[in-house]
Simulated scan of single mutants.
Amino acid sequence: MKRLSILVSALLPLAAAFPVLAEDDGNAAICAEAEERYVSIFGSSSADAEGVTVVKMYKYNFCPAAVTVPVGTTVRWVNVDKRTSHSVLSPAAGMPESDRAFPEESVEFTFLTAGSQEYLCGPHWETQQMIGMVTVTEE
């Protein structure tokens, strides 16, 4: 019985880590779906967008949740949801809240200052934790 107790004690920290792994897997699956929706809407990969870095908004997630871009880069947030609208704002970057982007619409912002700048979805950051990060680097 003592060996079982020791084994359970050793495994408990690992069990606590599994929800995090499951959440990461869930985000990866959601982001894969978001890319599929993007391709079905626009006919090409989001990586093929010229002159911008694309972040998809889907199922209360930013995909990818974090991007790194050089100063002067325009980030385009594209709503690939079917029914939900989103907005984007980043007070740290001087970006006021955008108008709502309805399905298949987008919002753009050009980052002119280096640093890590959190952004969020106005209507969903608090209830859905819809928050992302842009790290802007000097060229």
Results as ranks from 00 to 15, higher is better:
83 R>W: 15
62 F>E: 04
70 P>N: 07
64 P>L: 01
21 L>H: 11
74 T>C: 03
51 G>A: 04
102 F>K: 05
100 R>T: 08
19 P>Y: 01
73 T>W: 15
78 V>T: 08
79 N>R: 06
74 T>L: 07
82 K>D: 14
124 H>A: 04
110 T>I: 09
22 A>Q: 13
100 R>C: 08
55 V>N: 08
47 A>F: 13
68 T>C: 00
61 N>F: 11
88 V>M: 13
8 V>S: 07
53 T>W: 13
81 D>Q: 05
22 A>N: 12
49 A>K: 08
93 A>Q: 03
78 V>K: 02
21 L>A: 13
122 G>D: 03
15 A>N: 07
120 L>I: 12
139 E>M: 10
54 V>M: 05
123 P>R: 00
34 A>L: 12
51 G>T: 03
22 A>Y: 06
14 L>H: 03
11 L>R: 01
24 D>N: 12
33 E>P: 08
132 G>Y: 00
107 V>K: 01
32 A>Q: 13
132 G>A: 03
7 L>W: 12
110 T>L: 14
77 W>S: 01
91 P>M: 14
55 V>W: 11
132 G>F: 00
32 A>P: 11
18 F>M: 12
83 R>K: 15
113 T>F: 08
25 D>F: 03
33 E>N: 06
72 G>S: 06
67 V>M: 05
22 A>L: 11
52 V>L: 10
19 P>G: 02
66 A>K: 09
23 E>A: 12
34 A>S: 08
92 A>T: 05
72 G>W: 14
47 A>P: 05
65 A>D: 12
33 E>R: 03
110 T>G: 00
110 T>N: 02
125 W>S: 14
27 N>H: 05
111 F>W: 04
20 V>Q: 10
12 L>D: 09
109 F>R: 00
54 V>P: 02
92 A>P: 03
112 L>P: 03
4 L>C: 12
49 A>W: 15
53 T>G: 02
62 F>N: 01
36 E>N: 08
66 A>T: 12
20 V>K: 06
110 T>V: 09
12 L>S: 07
31 C>I: 01
71 V>A: 05
98 S>I: 02
79 N>S: 05
13 P>D: 02
88 V>D: 10
31 C>K: 01
98 S>K: 00
42 F>P: 07
63 C>F: 05
118 E>I: 07
93 A>V: 10
126 E>R: 05
124 H>N: 04
80 V>E: 02
53 T>D: 11
99 D>W: 06
103 P>C: 04
59 K>C: 12
26 G>I: 00
101 A>Y: 10
67 V>T: 01
49 A>F: 15
57 M>Q: 06
41 I>V: 14
109 F>V: 02
20 V>E: 10
82 K>C: 04
38 Y>I: 01
128 Q>D: 14
109 F>W: 10
11 L>H: 01
104 E>R: 13
1 M>F: 14
103 P>D: 06
85 S>E: 15
5 S>A: 14
112 L>R: 08
111 F>V: 04
94 G>E: 06
35 E>Q: 05
105 E>P: 05
